[in-house]
């Protein structure tokens, strides 16, 4: 309940305030968003599995975001930022798909 409310509030805030993304953050924000989404899906799945733990969720959320941003940052420094961010998105996308499949199986038993 709290995550859903939080998401709604956050989206509403973002739409209302409509801030501009600072330039230094622009390469990392999309990746961070995808990483955080991965953590959220993982949390949802854990919740359905009955093994949800808030601490793990918080830590995995933060570390996902930080690691994803770090990878992209490193890629930028090495000159392969675009490729590495693609790699991060692919990996996170696969994980999100997997989690979504597990959630679907829980919800629809199919």
């Amino acid at each position: 309940m709290i995550p859903v409310l939080g998401l709604a509030v956050g989206i509403a805030l973002g739409l209302l305030l409509d801030p501009t993304v600072p330039l230094w953050l622009q390469p990392y924000l999309p990746i961070a968003v995808v990483a955080a989404l991965d953590a959220v899906f993982g949390g949802a799945r854990a919740r359905l599995d009955g093994v949800f733990d808030a601490k793990v969720f918080v830590i995995s959320f933060v570390s996902n975001v930080v690691v994803a941003a770090l990878i992209v940052f490193l890629g930028d420094q090495l000159g392969v930022g675009a490729q590495l961010s693609t790699a991060v998105v692919v990996v996170l996308g696969i994980r999100i798909f997997g989690n979504a499949a597990a959630i679907r199986r829980h919800l629809f038993r199919a």
């Binding site: 995550p3 939080g6 998401l7 709604a8 989206i11 409509d18 968003v33 808030a54």
Partner: peptide, 21 residues
């Protein structure tokens, strides 16, 4: 934990909205 989760999800929603915008 709940408040942390709330903060994180608010941040996530905010980031999503901003990024989409």
């Amino acid at each position: 934990a709940a408040s942390l989760i709330a903060v994180l999800t608010v941040l996530l929603g905010f980031a999503i909205a901003v990024q989409v915008r």
